[in-house]
Design a binder for these strands. Structure first.
Lengths: 172, 172
DNA sequence: GTAGTGTTACTCGGATAAATATTGTCCGAGTGACATCGG
DNA sequence: CCGATGTCACTCGGACAATATTTATCCGAGTAACACTAC
């Protein structure tokens, strides 16, 4: 029951990407530096988010990552599933029919009650994650966070974002 | 986000232990054989359950394991926490202040909103687990399972349980 | 026949290897920007 | 001065090690039953 460490990084990056203007992008390298992570490792997770259609990637200079859809349409569940995989945490190994006194397979047509209970709990977990949109995270961040952090984050985004439409970045 | 494989075994064992008479015990060896698991490995998890006060262990011949309290007072959450550990799956590494442009620590007094959201979801998960008692599992098992399985399980328990009060087991 | 005693076999408990998943790193493919060259 | 072109640097993407966690195993400590002996 240990959630991968990359989930935290993924959500932070997604929240930061929600702050870029228009369809501009933010390089993974900049985000890694912003959060003190090894760039190569963060790329691994950003790649997973891209494969899950949560982010879009733009190659080449002035490339980077961008949200694949508005922050209102991205939930924490999307991000968690993209990083941790879509299959449930509890996988029933059907050990009830693995024992030495196994019965005829026809006896095991009904699902294992333990599996049902565990999956029910996990469904509650996913429901709670699905109920939190990325835009909620951003709103809560801008409202209930020390304004120094908000200002610093906005400044960082403004300085590192790469506009995509016919404009080059200004340096320094 | 992968739940340990021992959780399934632990719940099955606990449900089986709920079927022993009085304060009789069931050896871990028998349960391992019943579910086709390696005995030495199952002992590890049973030990964890014992340390968490979910089970009680009786050493010596005619010893074994027994529920530490009635099945109505044991929830799936107790078992899961005993096996997987009590700390939450999502651990906030506070990467927001690990970056290169870290601010004064006084800016980070308010908790990270992402951490709050994740912990809220996990609380929902634990609430669902806490809402399912071991007695519910047993009831659902006896009512909504093929009676061949129920009969086989009861027979196995009756044959392998060790009465604890001044009576020795009858063999064969 | 009954009580005491020593042995034995069975139990759980902790410490120790193997396997797997996660974490971390590196190198290669692709692309747009920049400088250079020609008109 | 303007446009085309070649080079370059920066990006993401996938393949490759190191570490941590989980899984599996073995051996030792403890205890109650059993057999034996003495009374």
């Amino acid at each position: 029951m240990k959630l991968g460490d990359g989930v935290e990084a993924a959500i932070h990056c997604a929240a930061m990407l929600a702050g870029v203007d228009g369809d501009g992008t933010l390089p993974g390298n900049a985000m890694a530096e912003a959060f003190g992570l090894s760039p190569s490792y963060l790329l691994k997770h950003l790649k997973a988010l891209t494969a899950a259609k949560v982010l879009e990637s733009v190659p080449g200079p002035s490339g980077g990552y961008r949200l694949a859809r508005p922050a209102e349409q991205i939930t924490l569940l999307d991000i968690v599933l993209a990083i941790e995989g879509r299959e449930p945490a509890f996988r029933c190994g059907e050990i009830r029919q693995k024992g030495s006194h196994a019965l005829d397979p026809s006896a095991y047509v009904k699902p294992c009650g333990i599996n049902v209970a565990m999956l029910k709990a996990e469904r509650a977990y996913r429901m709670a994650l699905a109920g939190t949109r990325l835009s909620d995270i951003v709103t809560d961040f801008t409202e209930n966070t020390d304004q120094r952090i908000v200002a610093a984050s906005c400044a960082f985004v403004a300085q590192n974002q790469r506009p995509q439409n016919s404009r080059t970045r200004m340096k320094g």
